[in-house]
């Protein structure tokens, strides 16, 4: 029997299915996306009840006989249901990941394409600027930007987006440098197409594979860094149910034995980051086998 020829997409999907850890990562992320979208229906309690139910402060969850009814993972110091806050937190962390990486993508693609396509002094100039931004450890630069433009979740997203754009620019640039030498680009130039048209119709679409892979992995770091800013009190502000901020608010109470309030938000971060890392590694193996380490 002759096997029907599969399209490129079908082939990629087949290869993806064989990669168990990538599928596992995708499942983790889909669960989080589901939780984020339907948080209003899934969360057992209000994540930010006002006034706070202080009589429920730091009650343990299902593992204890004194566990509080209706909050399986216990409550924090203001008597808020930790499970509900984690579910709502998925919404925040995922949007931070998307927005920050979106900013990095937009900036990175513009810088990378300009540098790679036009070369010469444009390239040197842009890459020196990128080098300079690279001389700051990522989190430190994000802290610096937040210190300048002010604290808050929206500003943290912008800061992380800016900090990540040079990495994206480098990936995009090297990809463009390769595509630029292809014959079909030369053909376009020969028939007199305008630079902008070549860039948007041919160079960018063909350079995207490594960028997509990188975006997934970058989203994992973006979520980690946003949580770190939240933890330092420079990102999401209370009472926002952001995982890093939750950890920070509850960490002092571990001394009193209330370990759950600081433990579970951290596990949520790990699930999100692990899922994205597995998915990113898998996508890399499938889309761009050259990058495999």
């Amino acid at each position: 029997m002759i096997r029907k020829r599969e399209t490129k997409t079908q082939e990629l999907i087949r290869r993806f299915k064989y990669n168990k850890s990538a599928v596992f990562g995708l499942i983790l992320i889909l669960i989080l996306v589901f939780l984020a979208i339907f948080a209003d229906f899934i969360a057992p309690n209000d994540p930010t009840p006002s006034p706070p139910e202080l009589e429920n402060s730091l009650k343990p969850g299902f593992w204890s006989e004194d566990g509080i009814e209706g909050s399986p993972l216990g409550t924090d110091m203001l008597g808020r249901c930790i499970l509900s806050r984690i579910i709502y937190g998925a919404r925040i962390s995922l949007s931070v990941g998307f927005v920050a990486v979106g900013i990095a993508l937009a900036l990175g693609i513009i810088i990378g394409v300009t540098a790679g396509y036009f070369g010469k002094w444009v390239d040197s100039l842009l890459m020196r600027i990128v080098d300079i931004i690279f001389s700051f450890p990522a989190l430190l630069l994000a802290i610096v930007i937040v210190a300048t433009i002010g604290q808050g979740l929206d500003k943290a997203m912008i800061a992380i987006g800016i900090v990540y754009s040079p990495q994206m620019a480098r990936v995009m640039r090297s990809s463009v440098l390769y595509i630029k030498e292809m014959e079909y680009i030369e053909a376009q130039k020969a028939i007199g197409s305008k630079n902008l048209r070549i860039i948007f119709r041919h160079v960018i679409p063909n350079s995207l594979a490594p960028v997509i892979v990188y975006s997934t992995l970058m989203m994992a770091s973006a979520i980690l860094d946003a949580a770190a800013l939240g933890f330092l009190g420079l990102g999401a502000q209370p009472p926002t149910p952001e995982w890093g901020a939750m950890l920070s608010e509850s960490r002092l109470y571990i001394v009193t034995g209330a370990w759950w309030a600081a433990t579970f938000p951290g596990i949520a971060i790990i699930i999100a980051v692990l899922g994205l890392n597995l998915l990113g590694d898998g996508l890399r193996d499938i889309l761009d086998p050259r990058l495999k380490t």
């Binding site: 933890f231 960490r251 370990w259 600081a262 951290g266 790990i270």
Partner: peptide
């Protein structure tokens, strides 16, 4: 793999705990 996905501040708090 777990190690690279862990927030360092969470690990610190867990070690402390």
């Amino acid at each position: 793999l777990f190690g690279i996905s862990m927030p360092v501040f969470w690990l610190g708090i867990m070690l402390m705990l």
